[in-house]
Nucleic acid binder design. Structure first.
Lengths: 223, 223
DNA sequence: TCGATGATTTTGAATAATCAAAAGTGAAAT
DNA sequence: ATTTCACTTTTGATTATTCAAAATCATCGA
């Protein structure tokens, strides 16, 4: 039988936690996983043990979980469905950047491979979703370019906003209203660690001030 | 909390069974309901009692179930989601008539009202889905015209194929390959009860022979 | 009125997923 | 070495949904 939505969500969360940690295959602690999924830690432990029995993750008691190759593929395919769905909702149904995440969160478990492929074709086999997140191919393979963020990129040098690693609708609405969306060209004018802020200058010379926590979520590519 | 997919499916099945029976508000026997949902009768009994506790159906032991007003509205909204989704998949994603039912069967539980309304708007607030089934409005109100079928309509009189009351992919593919889809103009040439068949003549004069069971599922309007 | 028959309900049990709270573990700080 | 504290696992329960099979009911015909 196909994996349940719950299983898919656990795999996705582990995948994303591994990625967030920088290195693939990192051990994800139970507490973090439970937090990401909104369940109590004991629940995550139980579920992870079941996933381990299915060969989708490898579990090290008191240390954490990581995905096996099989689990990684499944997780990537869930992400593929999610991201194609988001892009579709934005491009075809004209929904807002900020509101598609929740919707895709549910649709990703209901859409068939046939449907996802139709969408993929209609959109022209896109490489990234509206947030700049890479879309795995139908085998689950992804290339994740290593971008800098607004805290690490060079100052006073034009860069292209490429990816936003946060799905919070509130935050996305803020970015949108300040025209800080993937594709925009910007440059970092100043950083002030003490004041915990970064001053961004847009192409049209408008300044936007954002906190460092937020700045770290805005990934950019040279140019 | 929102109704589970299971609850939605029970309500939908009861709604459709009531409709199929001709009159709204008909008592649906447990066995029939269980059959429609692919569960054993005992399961349906248990579930229906829970639905009754929620005020969605009224349950008469050993007699059957019927929807309350609340249940009816919920069921109609599920049908709305289902039918708009089917039409959307056919019109926008170019999927086939025959394959959208299963897909919509899953998506109907995952799509938000926002999404459904977008789809409704994009499609121009359509009145019927690809099978000619009426689409309830966002309040759950539907108008279900009373059509004749190929067994009851007058002979040798042009009629318009208006609705197909069967979602079986195999059957739909047969109809499609014979150009018997909603909107086509046809007429019934002969009926033979003994041979259990109906001879239909298409607008282009091509004859199509179908069994009476199938003929009963093809609804038509005069003209 | 009495069964027989077929449908319906009940009972007991299973699975998936979850929580609360008790118990246990490990590693840093003393 | 010990203690401590945060994190993790275990335990016991609960909810939703389901099945198998035993028990019950309603009705039709004799």
């Amino acid at each position: 039988m196909p994996p349940s939505s719950t299983v898919e969500n656990y795999l996705k969360a582990i995948y994303q936690a591994e990625m967030a940690h920088g290195e693939r295959g990192a051990l994800v602690p139970m507490g973090q996983l439970a937090g990401a999924l909104g369940v109590v830690p004991g629940t995550a432990t139980t579920m992870v043990k079941a996933l381990a029995d299915s060969g989708l993750v490898s579990y090290e008691p008191y240390a954490g979980v990581r995905l096996t190759a099989a689990g990684q593929k499944l997780a990537a395919l869930v992400l593929r469905r999610h991201r194609l769905m988001e892009l579709f909702l934005v491009q075809v149904l004209d929904m807002s950047w900020a509101e598609v995440h929740e919707e895709a969160e549910r649709l990703e478990h209901a859409a068939s491979d046939r449907l996802i492929d139709r969408i993929d074709a209609m959109l022209g086999r896109p490489a990234v979703d509206p947030h700049g997140d890479p879309i795995p191919d139908h085998e689950g393979a992804v290339v994740t370019p290593r971008y800098q963020n607004l805290l690490t990129c060079p100052l006073d040098t034009p860069v292209t906003l490429t990816r936003v690693t946060d799905q919070d609708a509130e935050f996305l609405r803020f970015l949108e209203s300040n025209d800080l969306t993937p594709g925009r060209s910007i440059r970092v004018e100043t950083r002030d660690a003490a004041a915990d802020h970064v001053l961004v200058r847009r192409r049209d010379d408008q300044p936007v001030m954002i906190g460092m926590r937020a700045a770290a979520k805005l990934l950019v590519a040279p140019g």
